[in-house]
Design a protein around this nucleic acid. Structure first.
Lengths: 122, 122
DNA sequence: TCAAAGGTTGACACTTGTGTGAAGGAAAGT
DNA sequence: ACTTTCCTTCACACAAGTGTCAACCTTTGA
């Protein structure tokens, strides 16, 4: 599919899709006329990229871990570069920290909301 | 305590602590000589701010939800501005999305690591 | 008492990363 | 032909964070 359709289906503007390609997060084929040609599975990949970016991961990290995330596109078993493993483990640990921090604060917000709902004014 | 000590205990450079104050995340007292005077509990608060920033939340949001997060500093029951509640609920939902996304991808990385550990080369 | 050393303050500017806008041109659809 | 979509490229916007500098405060020690 072309960039317009992908933009419509992912709700990510074409400009941003080109930016992600520039950052190495996407590598669509090219038609003979030079137009980008996105495979079907890239719809999911774009959604996934958006989620990770919203979660605070920088593009450089996403670029590294993306090939390992289960996606119908890739068989992803391949060669296990020894230093890539270290990066992945480190990044997994970092994501764990984020999850813990977010969970803690989300629950704190929840508790606060519960409190003020019980006594609308105090 | 003064800015240098807080910086040492939180591992956040003084420059950044002034920046957070500028963004409205901290409001230390001032000594007669103009030096900032941080209360003890602000150590935790700075750590909390760092965690939320690392988790991808922008300062504007952190500024809004901080007063509601249980901190020995604040009694935090106070008045429940009707639109603040909406902001909190929305933000809680957003944090939930982040947690789900991060968890999903963290597990995917974990699964990948398990796979390549079982068969070091395939 | 005086001076050197080191922490603090405010201010201006700069870097990096994510995301947009717009110009100028080529291809596709009608 | 005319409009829409796409291409590349340059530039800009905004947030987080950092560098640096002159001036001021405090401590220490001669």
């Amino acid at each position: 599919m072309r960039i317009g359709e992908l933009a419509g289906r992912t709700n990510v503007p074409p400009r941003l899709l080109r930016y992600y390609e520039e950052q190495g997060l996407l590598a669509p084929d090219r038609a003979v006329n030079g137009y980008r040609d996105y495979a079907e599975c890239l719809v999911n990949r774009v959604v996934q990229i958006r989620g990770l970016l919203d979660a605070g991961l920088p593009t450089k990290i996403i670029k590294q871990i993306l090939p390992c995330l289960d996606n119908p596109c890739t068989i992803h078993v391949s060669d296990a570069a020894p230093e890539l493993i270290a990066i992945l483990e480190e990044e997994r640990e970092r994501m764990d920290s984020r999850i813990r921090c977010l969970t803690r604060n989300r629950d704190a917000i929840g508790a606060y909301l519960d409190t003020i709902r019980d006594r609308p004014s105090s």
